[in-house]
């Protein structure tokens, strides 16, 4: 028997869940509705939510645009290389935090986490001047370098948890089998931590994919833009007649991130919560 209070609590929980889901799903379904309309139907606005003549032409038109494909490619390149760079740079630090007992380890871990709290906006102007001084403005290398830096704190934490999950005794067994530190890291620790590392990589890619501010500030040439910046081009020139194209472009843009998350959500959630509970 569920008590009366229990039923009420359940109802409240589901009501809250429905509200939160609606908050995210309503704009998304609105976007789908717009993307499936013909230019004429756009003028019906919210009065005709389900289009009478749904069409996929808008998607075709956006995808046939060579510029759009170039933006997608740029986004993939920037977010992929940025994520890969974060994982590569964070791995040795995370390994050291996981395996070596040194003074100030806890403080340093917290300090790294504190960096994560700093909003990108706050450091944008000094960062811009610094990148200018390095000659990395208007380059993908510059954007990737910033992505790597932004992704580092959370990646160090995620990878530390992944390395913590590899029993030290396996490294000791490898040492007795005659392997040095680095070889043991490559042959034993890295392969066993790979699920956690993959999750960190995907999570970084998703975060980088939706980065707007950094590429917007760093890159001014259209051909270099990732989709997150270029999409504003569609919006910037908006007239009623291109809203359907903007909606289709938006959907295509967010689709990889949503797909990646849905396919890998179990891995990502377990990487984020690993070590939080004993299991």
């Amino acid at each position: 028997m569920v008590s009366r209070g229990g039923i009420l609590a359940n109802v409240a929980t589901y009501a809250a869940a429905v509200l939160i889901a609606a908050f995210f799903l309503v704009p998304l379904t609105w976007l789908v509705s717009l993307a499936l309309r013909t230019p004429q139907e756009i003028f019906f606005g919210a009065s005709r939510f389900i289009p009478e003549n749904p069409t996929l032409d808008n998607f075709g038109q956006v995808l046939r645009d060579r510029g759009f494909l170039n933006y997608l490619w740029n986004a993939l390149k920037l977010s992929g290389l940025g994520a890969l760079g974060s994982v590569i740079v964070a791995a040795p630090a995370a390994y050291a935090f996981s395996r070596f007992d040194f003074r100030g380890r806890g403080v340093m871990m917290m300090a790294i986490l504190a960096v994560q709290m700093v909003s990108g906006l706050v450091i944008l102007i000094p960062l811009y001047r610094y990148m200018g001084w390095l000659g990395l403005l208007e380059t993908h290398v510059g954007v990737i370098a910033i992505y790597i830096a932004i992704g580092l704190p959370i990646t160090v934490w995620l990878l530390k948890t992944a390395f913590d999950g590899v029993p030290i005794v396996l490294e000791e067994a490898a040492a007795i089998d005659g392997y040095g530190h680095f070889e043991t890291f490559l042959r034993i620790t890295l392969p066993l931590a790979s699920p956690g590392m993959a999750s960190a990589l995907i999570l970084n890619m998703i975060l980088n994919w939706s980065q707007f501010l950094v590429p917007f500030i760093m890159l001014s040439r259209d051909a270099q833009w990732p989709i997150s910046v270029a999409i504003y081009n569609y919006a910037g020139s908006t007239t009623a007649s291109t809203t359907h194209l903007l909606a289709a472009a938006c959907l295509i843009t967010i689709l990889p991130a949503i797909l990646a998350f849905l396919l890998l959500q179990r891995a990502i959630v377990s990487a984020l919560t690993a070590g939080a509970i004993k299991g």
Binding site: E172, I176, D177, I188
Partner: peptide, 20 residues
């Protein structure tokens, strides 16, 4: 000498087999 240079072999309590 490092463990590898001592020409010893060890069996651990939790076996320590490489799972991959």
């Amino acid at each position: 000498l490092s463990p590898g240079e001592r020409d010893i072999a060890m069996v651990f309590q939790n076996y320590a087999l490489y799972p991959h």
